[in-house]
Amino acid sequence: MAELIRYRDDEAVDHPAVTVDSFLDQSNANAVRVEPGDDARALIPHLTQLKLVEVNFPAFGDGRGYSSARILREAGYTGELRAVGDVLVDQVAYMRRCGFDAFEPDAALDPGDLAAALDRWPEVYQPTGDGRQPIWSKRHA
């Protein structure tokens, strides 16, 4: 497992995340792992209790985790949102846009490539809840 990359100042949760099912059963955990087939909306009643949501990408081509991330952020979740699994340098910029603020990739990311990828896009076409101003908003400021 490669190292954890975080874009947050608070302390990382240091214990393993539980599955969505067991979280909904026992409900005293503060870290949960969302698989691609899980409904992220099931967590919405419990967001204040959560400090870490891991969204697993078993294969980088499975894009369900991007929707899970946005759904959680749109519902007001402010804790850590961590992409784990087959997380590659060419997807991290989109992940950041969808609300992820931490990455735990299976294989280490080249720091230079990572920095370049995250710096690449000076403008964006869509608002995605990450606070970036879309182009249409700048046009009609």
């Binding site: 499975d62 894009g63 991007y66 946005r70 076409y125």
Partner: peptide, 14 residues
Amino acid sequence: RQWSSFHPEFSYLP
């Protein structure tokens, strides 16, 4: 076209 270009949520659709 502009909305769908580089849409971060919909770049790895089924």
